[in-house]
Write a protein that binds this DNA or RNA. Sequence first.
DNA 1: CGTATGTTGCACATCGGTGTGCATTGCACA
DNA 2: TGTGCAATGCACACCGATGTGCAACATACG
Lengths: 208, 208
Amino acid sequence: MDASASRSTATAETRERILEVARDVLGGQPDAGMGDIAAAAGVVRRTVYGHFPSRAALVRTLAERAARDIVEVISEVKASDEPAADLWTEFVRRLWPVAHRYRVLLALRRGELGEEIHALLTPVDQSLAELVERGQRSEVFARHLPPQLLGQLAYAAVFTVADAGRTQPDLDVDTAVVASLLLLGVPEQHARDLSTRRRSSPSSSLRS
Amino acid sequence: MDASASRSTATAETRERILEVARDVLGGQPDAGMGDIAAAAGVVRRTVYGHFPSRAALVRTLAERAARDIVEVISEVKASDEPAADLWTEFVRRLWPVAHRYRVLLALRRGELGEEIHALLTPVDQSLAELVERGQRSEVFARHLPPQLLGQLAYAAVFTVADAGRTQPDLDVDTAVVASLLLLGVPEQHARDLSTRRRSSPSSSLRS
DNA sequence: CGTATGTTGCACATCGGTGTGCATTGCACA
DNA sequence: TGTGCAATGCACACCGATGTGCAACATACG
């Protein structure tokens, strides 16, 4: 294996670079074609088709990765038994970079492959709702709204903040934390405390 | 003028119907083509081109109407001098049907004509931020976030709720009111009070 | 009835994006 | 030096949507 190592890694790197570039390009222009993506990746259009049989396949791979990453974050956070508010804070903190990278999905859920992507993201919604529900059971999150909707709202807020960061660069994670916590019914002062309280007591189960 | 009244009104009605249908169709499928829109309107594709020179023109007309309606709502609400929280409640109540109709815009801000539409919606954001800022000055809304972002977040919440209503039909205005008020830092109990307190003391300046 | 106007049906040119085939080049490896 | 594989460059066919031209039709109005 060592023999063909550099070759195969080289091709894997190309594939990876195409994916990353596609993620970014589509983030700013969901309608971008294979040509645009290839150009941005410093590659010829034909080469992209060498790694992905179709544009749909490329996008699907992207969506799968996003779903995988988000679900992973949720699962890891869920494993902890901290108070719900801290749990949520931790969740948003770790969701933040993912949301930032995959802001494409916001635009992708509707449009062309909407149905397929929506299906891929369903477990995310589900898992998220459970997280919210746990907070509601422990009397930390308000019960003013059903957990299903609350989950959608909360991470829509996170994505909105991440998206607004394109033009308003002084937006950081704390903003998203506070906004989503407020949505969940956590009093403002408490939410602000949570957002500024940097993880000084890192629970081992939450380290990346 | 009375002479050609029935003819001209008939054509105006056709144009109107196309616009309404396009609004709805695009709401569920932003990529729908002229053919789909025409079919949904019970008209032939060629006829649509008789009323709108291009697809872009049609979409632009739609966006202009949406912007006009929303700005109108904001302006009328602004004219009142009620407390900010009531003002906001009233605003969301009146924004609700508009957001519901024009949920297309959510998907349209990105994609094809994104730039143009974004420009059309800029005065909306501006006017909204002012409304939020007024609330912050009067110590009703929290100052945890800049009014610009807060405005975006708040009405993103309204649109999100409206959008979620497609699959979750038991969502009403009050949900949107509460969610957005929480985002603005209004305590949960107060927000709930505001949402359920039907306008028993209708300020004359707020009647439609 | 004749006229004007909106709508229809169909043909057609155009455009842009997709996906494929194939010969060629460049590079790493044996 | 020769072999293998990824990437290139260009060709092409295909498809779907856009936008246009024009004759035919329906209907309301004078």
